[in-house]
């Protein structure tokens, strides 16, 4: 399809990617590593959602990833639909040193499968691989201390340091196999990453890009755009259209 190729080269395909997950699992750090190749030790909690873009080349196509890095704090939960609406891909992040964060990830995935774009590509990502430690923890040890970690995380990202300090001691709480099994069952991409070391970060986004149906997106984007246009027009015109509607009403009576 030479036409498509030419188009890909001329204009990057815009892909909306949303990051979801519990507070303090490292969503922003993951994006920051991917986009700027940086890592900040004590990152401020995100408010609302941060927006970053990164261009990636895949075969002969250039993709522009518009990444919406949402806030994990519970008070922003209600805003999430705004960010995953029209998204072509979602990265749902959990913290491998905190078992509860996987549960939260699962509920995000359910919400996405129920409400987001049906073709959305979802990646389940276990972050903080650098804190995994050497051995996998025994069942009892993990459950014993996970409660403490949970309590810490309930408060939100302000508690990041303590949470991390607590988790540093205990290492991994979520076994790779467990998460992978879930991801396979739900039909998700699965990776483990470390935003701190950079391990697996680029791969995450590359895997997503590979799984996207670019041709469909390219052809859909126009349709979607015109759809958006219509909705935009509704928004746009609502003043005037309401006025017109009002006129119509007026004439009717």
């Amino acid at each position: 399809m030479p036409g498509h190729t030419a188009q890909h080269q001329s204009k990057p395909i815009q892909i909306k990617v949303v990051l979801l997950g519990e507070a303090a699992v490292g969503k922003s750090s993951l994006v920051l590593r991917f986009v700027n190749d940086e890592f900040q030790e004590n990152k401020e909690p995100t408010i609302g959602a941060a927006f970053l873009t990164q261009k990636v080349r895949l075969d002969d196509a250039v993709l522009k990833l518009d990444i919406w890095d949402t806030a994990g704090q519970e008070r922003f939960h209600s805003l999430a639909p705004m960010y995953y609406r029209n998204a072509q891909a979602a990265v749902v992040v959990y913290d491998i040193t905190r078992e509860s964060s996987l549960d939260r990830a699962k509920s995000w995935i359910k919400e996405l499968q129920r409400q987001a774009n049906p073709n959305i590509v979802i990646a389940l990502v276990g972050n903080k691989l650098d804190l995994a430690g050497t051995p996998e923890p025994t069942e009892s040890a993990a459950t014993g201390e996970s409660d403490a970690a949970d309590e810490g995380s309930e408060e939100g990202e302000e508690e990041t340091d303590e949470t991390r300090a607590a988790s540093e001691g205990i290492g991994r709480q979520v076994a790779t196999a467990t998460a992978r099994a879930y991801a396979d069952e739900a039909g998700l991409l699965f990776l483990e990453t470390s935003a701190k070391s950079g391990e697996g970060v680029v791969e995450t986004f590359t895997e997503i890009a590979k799984k996207l149906d670019l041709n469909q997106i390219a052809s859909n984007s126009r349709a979607a755009r015109s759809g958006q246009l219509n909705s935009g027009n509704n928004g746009f015109g609502s003043a005037g259209e309401a006025g017109n509607r009002a006129n119509a009403d007026g004439c009717a009576c």
Binding site: I47, G48, A49, A50, A71, R75, F76, S78, L79, M82
Partner: peptide, 11 residues
């Protein structure tokens, strides 16, 4: 959604 959206918008 209430004021959370104003916060998000401001940021």
């Amino acid at each position: 959604l209430g004021t959370a959206i104003l916060e998000a918008a401001a940021h």
